[in-house]
Design a protein around this nucleic acid. Sequence first.
DNA 1: TTCACTGCAAATCATTTGCAAGGCC
DNA 2: GGCCTTGCAAATGATTTGCAGTGAA
Lengths: 139, 139
Amino acid sequence: MIVAKEYLQSYGIRPSTQRIAVMHYLLTHRTHPTVDEIYHELVEEIPTLSRTTVYNTLHLLYEHGAILALSIDEANVRFDGYTHPHAHFLCCGCGKVYDVDLDDVAFVQRNTPKNAATITEAQLFYKGLCNVCSAKRQN
Amino acid sequence: MIVAKEYLQSYGIRPSTQRIAVMHYLLTHRTHPTVDEIYHELVEEIPTLSRTTVYNTLHLLYEHGAILALSIDEANVRFDGYTHPHAHFLCCGCGKVYDVDLDDVAFVQRNTPKNAATITEAQLFYKGLCNVCSAKRQN
DNA sequence: TTCACTGCAAATCATTTGCAAGGCC
DNA sequence: GGCCTTGCAAATGATTTGCAGTGAA
């Protein structure tokens, strides 16, 4: 638990019991858990824990860069009629999704997971601010 | 409209009015629309169109490989306490997410979108079947 | 005492499901 | 006629919000 506490503090996050528990869980379980998996594990040790707190804590950790968030599951999906290999760039300012050309289209195939028998899909995407939105924020 | 119809048929999909409209929209709009954006556009020309049909059609097109589906938005998210650059592999058989090492960690930086002022995040992931699940299905 | 944190309950939003009606072969 | 497709309405499931209680500095 000491590691998780110090880890939180190094990111400028106040270490409450619940936050330490969530951070500790993520540091010791490399299973890429969902909110529900984290909640169900931790409610055993902290019976009063609420789902809301788990949501709050994960958002906080994510905003401070202490954890990564993966949106692999399909929900709130966008569609693309262009089926050739390319990456995507979501601008968080205007919400638009741009296509991105890759300098090495073989990269994705070359890095196929070693324990994979078949790959049905591969996606690379970026999030950030586009030039237009960035310029607007300078004002 | 003729292009969309033939496109559907080439993927073995029966070309109904609604399916042609959805496919045509995706072929002529490279804006990576959401379900709702597609629905609101098309309900103008087909007033009886229901959201369910748009969902059905998109799933059908996706399963036949006629379109791509992007899960960029955050919903049903998984979390990772390991913040170093690596990719992920989701096995659709067991639902587990595995970490994937990259042979060229500079690739992602090198391919940063040209119209991006700042990048806050980049994700590469694969979907498919892991060796264990693939072996099970052979039985 | 104040302010941030927590947690319950209700609200919201996207998506799915059940089922009946319509249309095409 | 039979089957595939459509579309309404209700159900589901994840996430967010409002707000009141709690606890730590």
